[in-house]
Amino acid sequence: MTESNQELLKTPCYDLHIEAGGKMVPFAGYDMPVQYEMGVKKEHLHTRAQAGLFDVSHMGQLKLVGKNAAAALETLVPVDIIDLPQGKQRYALFTNDQGGLLDDLMVSNFGDHLFVVVNAACKAQDIAHMQKHLPADVEIEILEGRALLALQGPKAGEVLKRLLPESADMVFMDSRVVDFAGAQCIIGRAGYTGEDGFEISIPGEHAERITRLMLAEEEIEWIGLGARDSLRLESGLCLYGHDIDQTTTPVEASLLWAISKIRRTDGARAGGFPGADIILDQIATKDVARKRIGMVGLGKAPVREGIKLFNAQGDEIGVVTSGTAGPTKGSPIAMGYVQTQYAVLDTEIFAEVRGKKLPMLIQKMPFVEQRYFRG
């Protein structure tokens, strides 16, 4: 049964999307807004200039409870979870025995439990993975029915401070449990756009009321999945299932920054995660056949996922995994993989679009400066 003809799930904000004229599409089993009346480009630019509100309630939200939760989760990710300070969150990766990526996720430490957010399309698989590998003394509590909203943009901090004054002293990657307009919410200062912002988990029964409070602020507009994708690509952020997947190692994916130093250098906590031998060997030898790179088009035509990449001699050297027109950058941008010898800044390569070879330059990511609030 395809996603389009099975019963789609609805987020707690579904009625608000309809009310706002959202164009709904099937996405990861949910009926989700791809855009609103403003359109993808204007939504993208509004987020870069003011504040956009994204419904990401299709993501998986869960708690890991138990005094050994951090040590147990650390056996599944190449990340330092044991020393994650209380009130902080960290980006993590689930790896498989081949060193490939099962998913990327966010982990927050609240002292008596970890709060974990996983990708929508991987939710069931990730939960099964944890249920299989985490010990019996770690309870996995799936948080059903909660909304998850992302407030993103340069005005996000200023706007949220009006509604929730205690958010003002949070910095990038802080996490808190707060009373937001009478509802116990989980809030993190992070996001997926490269802008300052917050992700707010709200009990389902309070979601519409609190969302309306935010939408009443003049800087805030609803933003759909279309602009979410172009914003994250300009910011050089991977989309699971496109730029990274089970066949991609963190080294190939240029995600070395996401592997904590304590998990890859000599010591008791080095390795010990699935695929560690393969990943640590790739780090040591730098021996991988392909690398993830960013590309900027030298013409006006955008290049899309699946388009093949060639060198100047016409040899196929790679593939595009994400591409967009780059509304803020002002030129087509893309992400993809090329044979390692071509993964050099300012190398000219060619994307084949409808039989034409379009020139692109390999460029550093992010394509647009990240503006996270670090205090």
Rank of each mutant, 00 (worst) to 15 (best):
M1D: 07
T2W: 14
S4H: 09
N5M: 06
L9G: 07
L9W: 05
K10V: 05
C13M: 10
L16K: 15
I18F: 14
I18K: 15
E19Y: 14
G21R: 06
M24H: 09
M24T: 09
M24P: 11
V25I: 14
G29C: 13
M32Y: 10
Y36P: 05
M38G: 03
G39C: 04
K42S: 03
L45N: 09
H46N: 08
T47W: 05
Q50Y: 14
V56C: 08
S57K: 06
G60Y: 12
G60W: 07
L62F: 15
N68I: 04
A72D: 04
E74N: 03
T75R: 09
L76Q: 06
D80C: 03
I81E: 08
P85A: 13
Q86C: 10
K88E: 06
R90H: 02
Y91I: 01
A92L: 01
L93W: 02
N96I: 09
N109A: 08
N109W: 14
N109E: 08
H113Y: 15
L114Q: 14
Q125T: 14
D126R: 07
A128G: 10
M130Y: 08
K132H: 11
L134K: 09
V138E: 15
V138I: 15
V138C: 12
I140W: 13
I140P: 12
E141N: 14
G145P: 05
L148E: 14
A150F: 15
A156P: 01
L160T: 02
P165H: 05
P165Q: 04
M170Y: 09
R176F: 07
D179R: 09
F180Q: 00
Q184H: 05
C185R: 00
I187A: 01
R189T: 06
A190F: 12
T193H: 06
G197S: 04
F198R: 06
I200Q: 00
H206W: 11
H206P: 01
A207Q: 01
R209C: 12
R212Y: 05
M214P: 03
E219L: 03
L233C: 04
E234F: 11
L237H: 07
H242M: 15
T247F: 15
A253H: 06
S254D: 13
L256R: 08
L256F: 04
R264V: 00
R264H: 00
A268G: 08
R269Y: 12
G271Q: 10
P274L: 07
P274K: 08
A276M: 00
I279M: 11
I279W: 14
L280S: 12
Q282S: 01
Q282M: 02
T285P: 05
D287A: 13
A289R: 05
K291M: 01
R292G: 03
V296K: 02
V296N: 03
P302Q: 05
I307H: 13
K308W: 09
K308D: 14
F310L: 06
F310G: 03
G314W: 10
G314A: 11
G323T: 04
G323Y: 02
T324P: 02
G336L: 02
Q339T: 00
Y342V: 00
L345F: 13
L345Q: 12
D346V: 00
I349R: 00
F350E: 07
F350S: 04
G355N: 08
I362K: 04
I362V: 04
K364P: 01
P366R: 05
P366M: 09
Y372F: 03
F373A: 03
R374L: 02
